[in-house]
Write a protein that binds this DNA or RNA. Sequence first.
DNA 1: ACCTGAACACCGTTCAAGT
DNA 2: ACCTGAACACCGTTCAAGT
Lengths: 205, 205
Amino acid sequence: MNDEKPPSTRERILAAAADMLAEDGLTARLSVRAVAARAGVSIGSLRHHFPTQQDLRDELTRRIFDWIAPTDPIDDRSLPARDRLAGCLGQVLAAVGAGPQAREALAVAVRTFVTAEQTEQVRASYRAVERDTQHRLEGWLRTLAEEGALSVDDVPRSARLLSTVVNGLAYQRAMPADDTLTERERETLYTAVDAVLRPHPPHRT
Amino acid sequence: MNDEKPPSTRERILAAAADMLAEDGLTARLSVRAVAARAGVSIGSLRHHFPTQQDLRDELTRRIFDWIAPTDPIDDRSLPARDRLAGCLGQVLAAVGAGPQAREALAVAVRTFVTAEQTEQVRASYRAVERDTQHRLEGWLRTLAEEGALSVDDVPRSARLLSTVVNGLAYQRAMPADDTLTERERETLYTAVDAVLRPHPPHRT
DNA sequence: ACCTGAACACCGTTCAAGT
DNA sequence: ACCTGAACACCGTTCAAGT
C-alpha cells in the first residue's frame, strides 16, 4: 500500500533545516533565506509556519531531543560504561527539557529556592532535591564501580562533579543559547564522564 | 602640574563602550555604529583600532576583570598549573559572590535572559556574554597549553567543560546552601581542573 | 599612522498582494 | 489558509580616499 504523503511545506522546511544542520554541524547558518532556499519555499511562507527564526530552532531541537534516548541504559552491560553513564545523565537533562520548557524549569527553580523567602522549609526542600540527585548519581556510579570502571572511594566526589555539570548544562539550556547545543552538550557530558571513569577502559580504538 | 592627557581615540572608544555597558547592563547593544557614534568617531576609525567587534569586546572584558581582580593567577609560574587554573576559576566565582549576593546574581541573570521576552536583542546579548567567557577561559588554557599542561587541540572542549562547571557552581551558590559548600566547591573545581589538565600520571597513549 | 564614510553582503521581520 | 517577494531596518566588514 502506498501511504506516502506529499510532505507539507512545514515538514519540508524542517527537513531542509535538519539537513543543513547534519551537513555543516555546529557551524550551520540557519538563516531565513538559506533554509527557505534549501526547502524551495519563499521567505514569507517560512515565516507563516514559523513566525520567528527562533520558533524554527525550537521545533527543530524539540524533535532532536525526542529522537534520542528513551531508555535507561545503566544496566545495559553490552555498552561501554561511559555510554551508559552519559545516557543516564542525558535522561536527567531530558527531564529539564529544552527551549521554553528549560527556561520555565529554571524560572520555577529560582522562584522556589532563590527569590523566595529563605525559610528553613525552603532550605530543607532544596536539600531534599539535592540529596535525591546525589543519590541517583551515586547509585549509577556505584554500579559502574562494581565493574571496576571507577573506585568506590571516588563515587561521592565524582557524583558531585557530575551534578555540578548537569546543573551547569541545565542552566545553559535555559539561557537563550543559539540553536542546537546538543552536540556540544554531548561533548561536555562525555568529557565529564571520562574525567570520572577510569582512564581508557576500552583498549580498542 | 598638568598630567591631563587628551584621551586617545582608542580610549574614547573603550570609554564609550564601557558607558553603554554601565547604562544598559548586559543587554547593551555594542554595535559598530552605536559605539562609534557614542565615541564621536567614524566606523572606519573604530575598525582601525579594533579589527573586529569581538576584539573590542575582548579588550573591554579584559579591563573589567583587571578592574575587579588586578592580578591574574595564571601568570604565577611558581605554582603548579592546576592551582593557577583553579585560582582563575575561583576569581570568576568570586565575582558571583556568595549567599544573598549569589542569589541576586542568579535572579538578575534569569530575569535578564530567561523570563524576559526572548527578543533577538536578548539572545544576542547572552551569546556575547557566553563568547566573552569562552574566550577568557580559552586564553588561560592556551597559556597552560604552551607549557605542556594540556594539548592545544583540547582547549576549546576543555573551556566548554570548565564554563559549564562554573555555571553549575554559580547556580549551586545561589541555591539555599549547605554549610560546607566552599570545601566541596573547591573539591569539585579541582576535580574539573584535573580532568582538563594532562590526565593522570605520564601514561602516554 | 590615523581617520573618514560609502559600499557590500549579510541578517530577521514586516507586509501588501496574490492563490 | 497558504504562499510570494519586495522593502525595511538593522548588522559587521571592507576599502579607496583623505590628513
